[in-house]
Every structure is written in structure tokens, then in C-alpha cells.
Design a protein around this nucleic acid. Structure first.
Lengths: 340, 340
DNA sequence: ACTCAACGTCGAAGCGTATCGACGAAGCGC
DNA sequence: GCGCTTCGTCGATACGCTTCGACGTTGAGT
């Protein structure tokens, strides 16, 4: 592998000049720049990341802590991961995977060994055990998800409360007076993942202001649980029943339960699921969805870390961003009745 | 951040001694080792990755090239990613994400800048444009998937041919004489991903030796396509129909098409889907599955790279490993009739 | 014509680790 | 008791880059 010294030699300049051509941190004459760039081309020189990191104290790597619990909707997690990795490249950074099972020590490891310049944590719980550690890490950390106490932390997430409101408003506008909301899986609820509560709060708020009734029911992927929830919902409803299934994993089971009871979404029942535009395409039926904007959340998370990295802010930072959500109508919900 | 020099000072030894304590590459007396380890503890010393990489010419990082095309079954991709990351830690390595859209230049980048010591590529196509580059990279590369010409490459994958055989054998044993196989999505088939062909070959081979009929039909997630395929299959079948859906994305749509025709899996139709044990749990019905062993494939891929890394083999290596698959019976298939 | 400020380039000093050769101290056989 | 190996430690150097201070060169201003 050629080094910058080889390039310097080939171009007839000093090694430091090569470095300045690459970094642009000092003015270089057009003539010299050309000589150096030609030499780089010819030798197919690429700077050594280790040496660069050692000298500059920047690795240009961001650690991404990913969850893998089957109860989460993996397709959507993957969308986060993928967009985060692509976006990081736009900022000339790379992504290092850290699995959630490494826990807090894992964070200390990658930061302590200076493998990463910053971190992004996914699936942050209400009282995440890693939070105290995060607060004391001297590198930028962005949380995807809002913990119970976000003080001293930088957080971003979809606006789940808005999402809840939008779903209820939408169904109310279509004439539904009783709306059933399937909860996330027990495993998720029990972790006090804050978005569950925010979503539910949104549905309640909208229900109150619109004078409709919202019924919360157990969700998940267990067939019997869902069947039970559906039966309860049907019992509570006089008109056309409506369901909101914000948890991606519950959608298939719900659809199945409805269809086995002879109910067709968009005809004798309304269903709003959750999916990004990308994933909605793959649904077995044209599902009306609430888009929780995983791609946008991912992009912003990366931007925030990179901005913090650049501003080199060592002081404690704190911020909270909520990304607006949006409903997309497909044929699984009733149209608003103009007469209503 | 403390350095090894600080540790040396605190322990009253030379810096090189600290290094030898950590690496174990030279004998160290019990007394000295203890002093050094205490100092490390006290200072919470962690070696600097950049400096280590620079001096040792090893980064302890493996690049993982991930696909993100919606047509793939993302939940299963995520299972690969997650297991690969965890396994890498067992070998004291980390995983750097490289997205597929960086293409061949992306590989040259991470290897050229010496960000990684080795690579794992997922979703390798039959005539992958990256193969010529891979052959000339002077680092270990493991492909998950088998290209058309695997010469000079190290490949691993599930044994899709075995999987195809097992599915057909199983359904034949349950008394089915006509078996319909849903193909992968067009987008996947058109990329000549080799596992598609291997799976189909397996089904044909078994069909021939068992004297049953295998019908190949278009798959994917398009409702109309699947509906069409189901109708064709039903027309071809006299007894109880049987379906194999090796592509995870097609399963939901297939189930829906069957149920809307009044067919119940395990009763008047047999269905074998594809899922790892982890993911099978989350299916809306107890689906009999072919397990394509993503976790095992992942573990072995990591092991192979790490072994190659250790043996430091610069010479061209070539190998091909197939991981045996297995069928798990749940209630979506008929039981073998003892009288048959 | 002379001063002074850019401008462009160079040399050298680190950054923190791994590793090689050297060297004193023991332990062995004869 | 002598030379010899083995053990345990040290000092020095190399790894490839960034960055700082220094220095020669121009061109503008007076």
C-alpha cells in the first residue's frame, strides 16, 4: 500500500503538502495540487484510517446500537439501519454496529478505545440502564426514542402523539364513533418504551376533543390474544368497527382475525396499520397506514451527531426533536361520508 | 484518556511491558503482571484502536455489506446482521456496515483505507459485479451466497437444494401428488441469485425420484399474481393442494389468498413457508417451515473470516460450505397418512 | 526602491501502540 | 565454578498521518 510519503515523492513535494492538498486546510497552488492529485491517482493512494485517527483524534466512525428482539418489527428496524448507514456516508462517516446485548459496557468500550467519535442508540427505553453511562460519555450521543427523563440528552423520534391523534381524527372523520387501538406486544409495553405511551396519549386526546370513544386492547402476535381483542372490540361497537394497529408485527394477525370473522377492511371494517411508504408497498392488502417516518428520523439522527461532531461541543447538550407523522389512505379504511 | 505510557508509569514498568502484558506475546512474571493489571484497572485504561491498528496493521474490524431492497425479506436479513455482529464480538472483532449501494468502489474504499481487515458480503448474485474486485482484494472475503463461478472465492450459504428436496419429500410423504412452488419475487429472480435456482433444482430432483409433480408458479407480494398462481395450482390439483413458499415475503399474501378461497392450511391445503425458529414464532398461524439456518450461516461466515485472518493466508483461498437445512412441522401441513 | 503582508511550501514533532534487539539475572550441566 | 540457555524487562524504533512554526517568494502600497 502506498503512503502519503510515496505520493509526496512521486509528486516532488513534501509529505505535509500532500496532507494539505487532501484536507484543504492550507492554500495550495493550482500547479502543486495537480501534481499531487496525479500522483494520488497513479498510485491509487488511499489514506490509512488508523494513522489518520491517531493523528487527528477523529475516526470518522459512528457507533450504532441496534436491538434484536423478535418482538420488534425487524423490517422497520432494518430500514433505520440502512438509511443511517447511507446517510452517514453523505457526511463522510462510517457506521460501526454495536449490538444491544453488549449493554452499557459496550458503549464504554467503543468510546474508550476510540473506535467511534459518536453514537446513535436505537430503541431507547423509558428508564434505560444505559442512560447514566451515556450522560457521562464525552462524545456526542443521539437517542432514537425519548426516555422518561431526557435531561442532558439529545433525543429524536417520530411524533407518536401526533400519530395517535391523526389516526383517531382520520377514523372519526370517516364516521366511526368507537375506535379500537391494539397495543404493542407485552414485551415492548413492559419495557416502558416511551413511544407506546405517547401514541396512546395522542389517541385519547383526539378522542376527547372529537367526542368519540377509544378502546385500548391487548395486541401482539398471539392469535388468541388478538382474536379476543377483536371480539371485545366488536362487542363494544354498534356501527362499523375501526382498528388501529400501530405495531407492525400485529397487522398480519389482525387481518387474519378479521377475515376469519367475515370482515373485509375498507368495507365492513376500517383498519389503519403502521408502515413506511417503502414497507407499505409490500403489504398483502392496500393498507391505510400511519407513516412513522423511519427514514426521516434516521437521517436527522445522523445529521445531529455529525453536526455535534463538527461543532466539537464538549459541553453538555440537550435537545429533543419530534418528526411529524402522516397518514396515507389506501383502501383499508372507509371514506369520510360527506353526509356525516 | 490514559495511555499505555501512563499505565507503565503508574505500575513502575516500561511501556513495552504493558503492551506485553496485554498481548501475552512475551512471558511476564506474576508480580509484574499484577502491578500492571492493577494500574490498568485504576486508570480505566483502554488501548487506542487507531494506534493499535497503525502499529499492528490489524483493525479488528470486519466489513459487512448489507442489501436493502424492499423485495427481500428484511426480518431475515436483520437476523443475519444481528448474529454476525454478536459472533464477531466473540472473536474480539467489530462490524462495520457497508451498504450495497456503495458497490465495488465501497469495498475498495474500506479495504484501501484499512478500515477493515476482512469482509462479509451478503446477497451475492450469480454474476455479481463486485466479484472481480473481490478476487483482487488482498484481504479475506466471505460471500454469503454462491455466485455462478465460485472459483477463487470463499462462499457459504444454506443448502437450498437440500431445502427444496426436503420440502417436496415432506409433502409427498403426507400424500400430496401435486406440489406447487411459489417462486421468489421477480426482482430477486432477475438478479440470478443463485439460491433460487438451487432450491428449484432440489424440488425437481425430489419430485423426479418420488414420482410426484412439482409446478413452479410466480410468487412475490403482488396480490393478483399470487391469486393467479393459487388458481392455477388449484386447477392442476386433484387431491389436497400443497404449496411451498420459500420466499418469506410471499407468505402473508399466500395465506390470504388461500383463506379467501375458503382453504385452511393443515386441513384442506398444506403450506410450507420459510422461517428461522425465531421468526416462525411470530407467524400469524403455526406455519410448517423450512429453516434456512440464517443464524448458523452467519456464525460460520464470521468464523471463516476470522480463521483466515488469523492464518494470515495471503495466498488465494477457495472454499464452499453448505449448511444443512431442516423442516419443522407445525399445523399448516397435513400429517403423513399411515395408510399411504 | 523598500516594507509588509499574504501566499505556498517545507521540516519536524507528535499521536499511542507493537515489536525487535539487547541485556541482566537466574538456573542448568559438566 | 564456568559458560550456556531461558526468563523477564527495557529502550528504541516504526507505523502513516495531522499540524504547527518557520521560511522563502510575490505583489501591493507608498
Amino acid at each position: 500500500m502506498p503512503t502519503s510519503k510515496d505520493v509526496a515523492q512521486a509528486a516532488g513535494v513534501a509529505q505535509s503538502t500532500v496532507s494539505y492538498v487532501l484536507s484543504g486546510k492550507r492554500p495550495i497552488s493550482e500547479k502543486t495540487r495537480k501534481k499531487v492529485e496525479d500522483a494520488i491517482q497513479q498510485l491509487t493512494y488511499q489514506p490509512n484510517a488508523g494513522a489518520r485517527a491517531l493523528a487527528s483524534r477523529k475516526t470518522r466512525v459512528i457507533g450504532l446500537v441496534i436491538p434484536f428482539i423478535p418482538e420488534l418489527h425487524m423490517a422497520s428496524i432494518m430500514e433505520f439501519v440502512s438509511v443511517i448507514a447511507s446517510t452517514a456516508r453523505l457526511y463522510d462517516h462510517d457506521i460501526l454496529l454495536v449490538t444491544e446485548d453488549e449493554g452499557a459496557p459496550g458503549l464504554q468500550r467503543v468510546v474508550g478505545q476510540q473506535i467511534c467519535d459518536g453514537l446513535i442508540l436505537m430503541q431507547v427505553e423509558g428508564d434505560d440502564e444505559r442512560l447514566p453511562v451515556v450522560r457521562n460519555l464525552h462524545v456526542p450521543v443521539v437517542l432514537i426514542g425519548i426516555p422518561r427523563d431526557p435531561s442532558g440528552l439529545v433525543c429524536i423520534d417520530a411524533d407518536f402523539e401526533m400519530a395517535g391523534e391523526q389516526c383517531v381524527q382520520d377514523l372519526a372523520a370517516a364516521g366511526h364513533t368507537v375506535i379500537s387501538v391494539l397495543d404493542w406486544q407485552r414485551e415492548v409495553v413492559d419495557r416502558h418504551v416511551n413511544y407506546v405511551e405517547r401514541f396512546m396519549a395522542g389517541t385519547n386526546k383526539a378522542a376527547e376533543s372529537l367526542g368519540v370513544k377509544v378502546v385500548h386492547l391487548p395486541g401482539g402476535t398471539d392469535r388468541d390474544v388478538i382474536a379476543d381483542s377483536v371480539d371485545k372490540a366488536l362487542a363494544e361497537t354498534t356501527g362499523v368497527p375501526a382498528f388501529i394497529a400501530p405495531d407492525g408485527t400485529a397487522q398480519d394477525v389482525l387481518r387474519r382475525a378479521l377475515s376469519s370473522r367475515g370482515l373485509t377492511p375498507g368495507k365492513d371494517v376500517s383498519v389503519i396499520g403502521s408502515a413506511s411508504p417503502t414497507l407499505a408497498e409490500l403489504q398483502p392488502i392496500p393498507l391505510s397506514t400511519i407513516d412513522l417516518r423511519p427514514a426521516e428520523v434516521s437521517r436527522r439522527a445522523v445529521k445531529i451527531v455529525c453536526d455535534l461532531l463538527q461543532s466539537d461541543s464538549r459541553g453538555p447538550t440537550e435537545s429533543l426533536e419530534l418528526v411529524p407523522t402522516a397518514i396515507t389512505h389506501r383502501s383499508s379504511t372507509l371514506r369520510p361520508s360527506p353526509g356525516a
